[in-house]
Amino acid sequence: MTSPTKPTVLMVPGLRDHVEDHWQTILQRALPNARSVAPLEHDKLSCAARVAALDAALRDIDGPVVLVAHSAGVMITVHWARLRRRPIHGALLATPADLETPLPEGYPTHDALRDNGWLPMPRERLPFPGIVVASTNDPLARFERVAGMAQAWGSRLVHAGAVGHLNPASGFGEWPRAAELVAELSRERANAPC
């Protein structure tokens, strides 16, 4: 179990799970208090299975937690927040995939996402502080749509510029801004009970 004084940073990967050269994987290795939701062996497209995996990872952590979600991991996080009430210190929600609009070839279809419980996307205010990072040229979500998500979730929007989907295919690899935003979220409620 983890010390309750400093938040544990929990990575919530997207549908591609753990990618070795992804900024989440690099950040996890760099932080002494970080871990990740375990990859699924079965039901990989099931939103309920992904939410259950996040919930199981959180049950193994004592004390405050900062979630670091990317792409569909953001949707896993907001679906989880709608169903569960474990206190969360804050969440970095980077380049959420807009699952309500058709995704590029190679990604699940709208029907497959609907049939696996991803739709509709939750629009309720999150019960914890959030920072949503949006890209101006993300092939998985238009900036305006992500800005609307941030507003609905009661989260601060960070305009990241033209960073694509903020993944290795877009040139990220290492993303130093992630550590800065996680540190900000870790401090944000330092004196608040979690």
Rank of each mutant, 00 (worst) to 15 (best):
G90A: 08
L67N: 06
P39A: 12
P39Q: 15
R84D: 14
V65M: 01
D60S: 12
R29D: 13
N33Y: 00
V78L: 11
D98I: 06
I26M: 09
Q24L: 14
S71T: 06
I26Q: 08
H42T: 15
Q28R: 12
T25R: 10
T101V: 13
R82H: 03
L54P: 07
L58N: 10
I61R: 01
C47Q: 13
I26P: 04
L45C: 07
D21C: 10
E105T: 03
E41K: 14
H79Y: 12
P102T: 06
A53R: 10
G106E: 03
L67D: 07
A52M: 07
L45V: 08
G63A: 00
D55N: 14
T25W: 04
R86P: 05
T95Y: 02
T77Q: 03
H79F: 07
V37F: 01
T77M: 01
L92S: 01
V68K: 01
V19W: 06
D43G: 13
G106H: 00
Y107V: 00
A34E: 01
L40S: 04
R82K: 15
R85I: 07
A97S: 15
E100Y: 06
V19F: 04
V66Y: 01
H22E: 06
R35V: 04
I88C: 06
H89P: 03
L99H: 03
A81F: 04
H79S: 13
L67I: 01
L31Y: 02
L67F: 03
A53T: 02
L31T: 00
A94R: 03
T95M: 07
E20V: 12
D98L: 08
I26F: 00
R35P: 00
A56C: 10
A52H: 07
S46L: 09
L45Q: 02
I88L: 02
A53S: 11
A52T: 12
P87A: 03
L58A: 11
V37T: 07
A57N: 11
C47Y: 04
W80G: 04
N33G: 00
T25V: 09
A38G: 10
Q24K: 04
R35D: 10
L83M: 14
D62Y: 00
E20Y: 02
W80C: 08
G63V: 00
T101G: 02
A48S: 15
G73M: 10
G90T: 07
V78C: 06
A91D: 11
A57D: 06
W80E: 05
A49V: 11
I61E: 02
E100S: 11
L99G: 10
A94P: 09
R84F: 12
A94E: 14
D21M: 05
A91C: 11
A52W: 01
W23A: 07
H79E: 11
M75L: 15
S36V: 09
D60A: 14
V68A: 15
E100P: 05
K44Y: 07
G73Q: 14
R82Q: 15
V66L: 05
D98H: 09
A53F: 04
G63W: 01
L92D: 04
D21T: 14
A69F: 09
V74I: 10
T77C: 02
V51N: 07
V66F: 01
R29W: 06
D55A: 14
H22W: 05
A34C: 02
V66W: 02
R85S: 15
W23R: 05
